[in-house]
């Protein structure tokens, strides 16, 4: 495999891109958050619990979660992103829902729906991870019962080196790259999302996940700071 010793943006193998987070960015929503990592920007808005229509979709035991992932028309790398759902965004909406559903307790709200809208005004790489990281903050902001926070990031193989948080150049590395988005809970480092297509050795995968678990803690700190800042901003 091709050698890849120095990263495109000069980061260390386990170093994340610069992050920024903010909670309560969309006033009309019941909960909202922004998460920015490198050049990827995700906005998440949560509405609900609210009555679910059509009624046949209702679950009388607990509320359901609906996620919608959407890249804005100008969000890509120059080409206009065609609006509306497509195969890719539907898949990502589904895995986002599954990554969040395992920490969210909706048994208090039978027959209702929680809607999570995740929008990207600007994308680089790792959008689904940034989306999940923003969405879990928005769900917490909406006052819902969440057992644990989730932090998502991509890990993977670029050339022959294991790195965390791949940027676009690394995803497209001509010497071959494997991109593995993972979502990791904070408390006991459990995995709620893991997608992988490509070839990677078992040891490399485990090494990548170990690095990912460490890096997820750093994302968690950013999330925590943003959530607590909501109550302390405007100066006390």
């Amino acid at each position: 495999m091709t050698q890849y010793s120095k990263r495109f943006d000069g980061r260390k193998a386990d170093e994340l891109r610069p992050m920024e987070a903010m909670v309560g960015v969309i006033k009309r929503a019941d909960g909202s958050a922004m998460f920015k990592i490198g050049k990827t920007v995700a906005f998440a808005a949560v509405y609900g619990p609210r009555a679910l229509h059509p009624t046949y979709m209702r679950n009388p035991e607990k509320g359901i979660l609906r996620c919608n992932y959407n890249m804005m028309a100008f969000a890509g790398s120059g080409d206009r992103v065609k609006p509306g759902p497509n195969r890719r965004s539907k898949e990502i909406s589904l895995v986002t829902k599954k990554a969040l559903a395992s920490v969210l307790d909706l048994s208090e709200f039978p027959n209702t729906v929680i809607d999570v809208f995740i929008e990207f005004p600007q994308t680089d790489a790792g959008t689904r991870c940034a989306g999940i990281t923003a969405a879990v903050m928005a769900l917490a902001d909406a006052g819902l019962i969440i057992k644990d926070m989730v932090s998502a990031l991509s890990v993977g193989l670029v050339g022959d080196s294991v790195v965390v948080d791949l940027c676009k150049e690394e995803e497209d590395f001509e010497g071959g790259a494997v991109d593995i988005p993972v979502a990791i809970t904070n408390k006991d480092s459990k995995i709620t999302l893991l997608q992988l297509d490509g070839l990677i050795k078992k040891e490399q995968l485990f090494r990548a996940l170990d690095l990912g678990k460490e890096a997820a803690k750093k994302i968690h700190e950013v999330q925590k700071k943003a959530l607590l800042e909501k109550f302390t901003q405007n100066g006390i």
Partner: peptide
């Protein structure tokens, strides 16, 4: 939940300050 901790005797609870 996201909120403020309230300890009453032996009970620990979190009061939510946001949401519906």
């Amino acid at each position: 939940q996201l909120g403020i901790v309230n300890v009453v005797g032996r009970l620990v609870k979190v009061i939510s300050l946001s949401g519906r």
